[in-house]
Design a protein around this nucleic acid. Sequence first.
DNA 1: GTAATTACATGATCTGGCGCAATTAATCGC
DNA 2: GCGATTAATTGCGCCAGATCATGTAATTAC
Lengths: 249, 249
Amino acid sequence: MTTRRKSPVETEAIQPQMCSVDVRQHILRHVPFFAMLSEEDIGRINQSFREQGFEAGEPIYYAGDPAARLYVVAAGKVKQMRHSLTGQDVLLDILSEGDFFGSLSILGDETYPDTVLAQTGICALSIDSEGFREILQAYPPVALEVLNITGQRLRGAQEAVHQLSAYSVEQRLAYTLLKLMDKLGEAQEVGVLIQMPLSRDDLAAMTGATTETISRIMSQFQKAGWIKSGRQWVAIRDSEALREVAAGG
Amino acid sequence: MTTRRKSPVETEAIQPQMCSVDVRQHILRHVPFFAMLSEEDIGRINQSFREQGFEAGEPIYYAGDPAARLYVVAAGKVKQMRHSLTGQDVLLDILSEGDFFGSLSILGDETYPDTVLAQTGICALSIDSEGFREILQAYPPVALEVLNITGQRLRGAQEAVHQLSAYSVEQRLAYTLLKLMDKLGEAQEVGVLIQMPLSRDDLAAMTGATTETISRIMSQFQKAGWIKSGRQWVAIRDSEALREVAAGG
DNA sequence: GTAATTACATGATCTGGCGCAATTAATCGC
DNA sequence: GCGATTAATTGCGCCAGATCATGTAATTAC
């Protein structure tokens, strides 16, 4: 008899979220690229943003929609995805509090290349692209920080290309779990829990594999005692072992 | 008897390049993110750059080297690559005149995550990261344009992730040839020639496939009359057919 | 509560593309 | 010009991982 858990350890912490109007200023102050601004500058910027709540599973926008706005995740997690004609979806990134997504450029006639879905209940702040451009022009240090972050994401995406081109599904899965742990991990009795609902399907879409293959490898990892996992949740128990697998053990 | 060509149509146009000192100002003026500056601003910026020539095949830097400088391709083409422990190399991007690469951030203790090799003889202008940061701070419109370009590259990399996750080698190859045609294509009698030395190995490293598989598919494409290709060169004759293949025909 | 639905597991089979090998063609070095 | 080197082609066996199929545990709907 396997020690498979019957109930998720922690989805209670992830409830549908709405922004209370009062906390917007507080949230904006903690967005990495606004952190260096004064309270009154943030107050000014605050006026250009509007808030919006989304239920878990709801789309923020679809690929092909006219790209008009830039969003900042205030609370919760979203999935950035790309669709294929074959129906196979690819999960490019998971974004959480303080991350931005949507349209950076001011070219009006563009459409979003990706779809963004609320993975948990979320609160998002958004601003139209021109408004954001104005902020970038008015506060050059903000632009530099946004550039920094975009550069880091570019490197991350290039690393993903590398992984998909050169490594096995097992290695990619190990790597993906480690990245998720770094970003969303929370120490618990079961291990370091990845603090969000995370299905085999999600992991398959993140690693460019099928659900079945991911399920098989997750079973192996679990048997080896490296992870503990149930329905829509994963905790890492031996990150060192995963690191070895990812590196080509 | 196949109509395989015995000699490349156009590598004569790609000779080892050195920058003459005189042309630097001219080159900088045509770099996209400096285009909006005045002649005298460019002159000031010019002083922070230094030039360097590289022979075809020479490395500009290796992954793991301390990341200290930002480069701009003044003439020629370079390959941006990532290595794997298994020896399998991945070709992330081909950069040509006006493109930048290297270190954007000012964090001193970093190393380059990629290797950049001169694909042809090239001339590169370079500046230390702090110097570039100072320029970005001094000329905010430059920072915005660099952000624009970085954002576009991020989308390109995400599209590559999508392709690798969801499409066949045949589709990825068709897509890659089309992108190269858009970037480097030059109308010739044989078709639209991709104006750089481009081997099956290069295409394999760009598509995450093996040389043999690429060779086989290139033969198919050639038999179908969609491309014409020889030793280190490729010309596209029917881009519409390739587009159909890429889209899932 | 019970039925319907959704997430996960695992076995059996099939295949796109890899790995290896042998041959041919173009280019380089002297 | 001629051998040495590098690029490309093509055949063949094989395997990682996809696909298909079936079963079961957890969750949702009522």
